[in-house]
Design a protein around this nucleic acid. Sequence first.
DNA 1: GCGACAG
DNA 2: ATCTTGTCGC
Length: 235
Amino acid sequence: MSRSAFGDWDGSIEGARRLQTQLAAQVRLVDEAPAAPRTIAGLDVGFEDQGATTRAAAVLLDGTTLQLLDSVVERVPTAMPYVPGLLSFRELPALLAALQRLAQVPELVLVDGQGIAHPRRLGIAAHFGLATGLPTIGVAKKVLCGRFEPPGPQPGAHTPLVHNGEQIAWMLRSKARCNPLVVSPGHRVSMDGARERVMALLRGYRLPEPTRLADRLASRRGAMPERVPAPTGRF
DNA sequence: GCGACAG
DNA sequence: ATCTTGTCGC
């Protein structure tokens, strides 16, 4: 546990929740990332060895063409179990290690998971933003907390996700016939800015390019000529 | 007390 | 997250 990411955490569950509440007060929901980032990173985590090993993937894309500039996969022994609401304490160390191995420091980061759409407003994307100081956006496939009305069927439709009377994210229909994404600002990005940025990064798939590519690396799927796919069925 | 619960 | 083939629908 690096002091920079978890401060003086005592290691307890209650302590982790207390720290989240403290850190959440430092999150800035103001647009501070360049209007046209030169580089954008996508981050995601996967597991192997039945969870014993945490695999973090980081991809660096050209902010204008979205072409892949670099990608890294970092493996670290898993140190904590998954506890709803405390995801960053389990995955942040691996994500930070992956980011540091990237060829360049990105001007904007998309993380697979919640930004401020969290019980104490500190999802992994927000925590990552505070730990690195970089502008971040959380792109999750499921809701952690809050309620919402389903957005319309057309791509781009969106409705607010509300928790304790405040909007914590946008439920965004990124693609027709697909469940909406949970888009929330992490750090140094506004609520509207988060949605607009994600919309601009969509390329025909449910997930925006940065997160989609990181997902494939972290989950062992395509984009890695490590093994020829075995034939299905006989002939 | 009961149900929900990112990855 | 992960274990896993085929299958229904657009």
